[in-house]
Computed example of a mutant assay.
Amino acid sequence: MNINCEILDLRAFQLVVEFESFHRAAEALHMSQSALSRRIQKLEASIGAPLLERTTRHVAATATGQELLPLVRRMLEEFDASLFSLKDANSQRRGLITMACLPTAAFYFLPNVVRRFNEEFPHIRFRILDLTANDGLRAVARGEVEFGINLMGNSDPDLSFEALIDDPFVLAMRKNHPLAKKDVIRWPELEGHRLITVDRSSGNRALLDATLARANLRLNWFYEVTHLNTSLGLVEAGLGISVLPKLATPQGEHPFLVTRPIVDPVVTRTIGLVQRRSGRLSPASERFLEMLIKTWKQ
Rank of each mutant, 00 (worst) to 15 (best):
G240M: 05
L207R: 11
E191N: 14
A237G: 06
H227Q: 14
H193L: 03
V258L: 06
L208Y: 05
V266E: 12
Q251I: 09
T259W: 07
S201N: 15
I241Q: 08
G238A: 01
T226F: 13
R200P: 02
A213Y: 01
D199R: 12
V267M: 05
G240C: 08
D199F: 08
V258R: 04
H254N: 04
D209M: 11
L247K: 00
T259D: 07
T249M: 08
R205D: 12
N216C: 01
S242W: 00
E253Q: 15
E224Q: 15
S242G: 04
L212F: 07
R260G: 01
N220G: 12
T230V: 10
G192Q: 08
L244P: 04
S242V: 00
L257F: 07
N216S: 14
L195T: 09
S231Y: 03
G233E: 09
K246F: 13
L234R: 10
A213V: 09
W187F: 02
T230W: 10
L232Y: 06
L247E: 08
V235C: 07
G192W: 03
F256Y: 12
A248F: 04
V198N: 03
G252P: 03
L208R: 02
L190I: 11
D199V: 02
A206G: 04
R186Y: 15
W221Q: 02
P261K: 04
N204H: 11
V258N: 00
Y223F: 15
G240F: 03
L239H: 15
L219G: 02
E224Y: 13
H254M: 06
H227V: 06
P261T: 01
T249V: 12
D199I: 04
Q251R: 14
D209Q: 13
R269T: 15
R205C: 06
R218K: 12
T259Q: 12
T230D: 12
L207A: 14
N229V: 07
D209I: 11
H193T: 07
T226C: 05
R205H: 14
H193N: 15
G238L: 09
L228D: 12
P245A: 07
E253S: 15
T259M: 05
V243Q: 01
H193C: 06
D199C: 10
P255N: 01
E253L: 15
T230M: 06
R214I: 12
E224S: 14
L257T: 06
L219I: 11
L219Q: 09
H254D: 05
N204V: 13
E224V: 00
F256E: 11
R214Y: 00
S242K: 00
P265C: 07
V266W: 02
R260T: 01
V225L: 13
G238Y: 10
T197I: 11
R218W: 10
P261W: 01
E236M: 09
R194L: 09
S202Q: 04
H254W: 01
S231G: 15
T268G: 00
N229C: 00
A248V: 06
T197K: 05
V263F: 03
A206E: 14
Q251T: 10
S242Q: 05
L234A: 00
V267A: 01
N229L: 08
L232V: 11
K246T: 09
S201V: 10
V235D: 06
E224C: 09
G192D: 02
